[in-house]
Design a protein around this nucleic acid. Structure first.
Lengths: 198, 198
DNA sequence: CCCCGCTGGCTAATGCCATTAGCTTTCTTG
DNA sequence: CAAGAAAGCTAATGGCATTAGCCAGCGGGG
């Protein structure tokens, strides 16, 4: 009766593999059964390493939101000023298309009201703060900053969700539509900046 | 052994009640158990009226998307020209806030790739066509029509999703943020119109 | 009026999932 | 080397959907 040599991190890694292999619904379909099967272990054995399915989801989400933040940090190292916001937008969509399950792990569940998900929430708030900086770099005045960040989040997240769901029926170029959206967003916010700043 | 006197429509109505009482996750949490409990009936009895949980979900979604279309039709009777798109946007958010479960029934699942959901898909496409008309009424040129509709859908849906998820951490006025978003959207599309139309 | 059959309910059984309890074996450590 | 902690296991429970097969009530036709 050989041991599998699991530990918390290994279980989370296997869970991430399940999420990655499950497409856009990979996170929703994450199951202890699937993880145990990958580990070559009986389901209850997982409880030696994680507290249960909700806890595992939380740990997966934490990895994903950290990765999210890292991705944005890399963008920040590359771009400044008015280039930052569109670069963030593209990076977010890129990440969502590359890892739809991980994107859903971050965005899909409401970590907002889960008292045990403070860590996920904290990182999420740092990401939003990054977006806020990018909006500020466009010159958006203070009193519109929150509205502007909400608009950016809504537009980008909405687009990605619809795209991942296959919600864009027409076969027309989706990349072009995203560029259109981002251009409109940036243009609108810049216009807001000059009209108030001048 | 008295009979409950159920039929297909009654079961769907009870399912809608479950969805409505479940808040934003009402549709996700829709369960045959819950419906049967409301009906005062054992779970397998429901199979005399609906083909199973996926089929029930589909029928619920159909009711909800029809209602969605009706809501937009009422707006269309009230508004014309450049007023139409913002009115649509507000109506959609209003419906989502009033009936979050029903909104998720329409938007949350991917009826796009369910071969048995052709009816849901057809109505959804009519709704999108309505949006396209509203975009056209703003003067957006043909070759940008699809991009514009996608941007509108992304922005409105994204906003609603984030709001329903409680994703807007700040307590600042969410209504004002939505107005900001809609104003930016309409402004951007109108500007697109004049710059091309002139 | 009665009987027959359809229809809408039921119970029982199966299978998948998460979770808990409690056992055993293996590895580590003193 | 012995003992205990750690990591696996099986068994049992409970929630869910689904299928099979049974039975009663109600309607229409003889």
């Amino acid at each position: 009766m050989p041991r599998a040599g699991l530990d918390r991190a290994a279980v989370v890694d296997l869970a991430l593999a399940v999420v990655d292999d499950g497409g856009p619904s990979g996170f929703a379909d994450l199951t202890l059964s699937a993880v145990a099967a990958r580990a070559g272990v009986a389901v209850p054995s997982l409880y030696k390493h994680v507290a249960g399915l909700p806890a595992l989801r939380r740990e997966v989400a934490l990895v994903c939101v950290d990765e999210f933040e890292t991705t944005l940090a890399a963008v920040r190292a590359r771009c400044t000023g008015a280039d930052l916001l569109p670069a963030y937008a593209r990076a977010i969509r890129g990440l969502a298309l590359r890892s739809p399950g991980r994107y859903q792990a971050v965005q899909g569940s409401s970590w907002m009201h889960d008292p045990d998900a403070a860590a996920v929430r904290a990182t999420g708030e740092r990401v939003v703060a990054e977006l806020s900086d990018a909006v500020a770099a466009l010159g958006v005045p203070h009193d519109r900053r929150i509205d502007a960040v909400r608009a950016v989040r809504a537009a980008v997240h909405g687009f990605v969700v619809l795209e991942l769901d296959g919600g864009f029926g027409m076969p027309d170029d989706v990349d072009a539509s995203f560029d259109f959206l981002v251009a409109g967003l940036v243009g609108g916010l810049e216009r807001l900046a000059v009209s108030s700043g001048a």
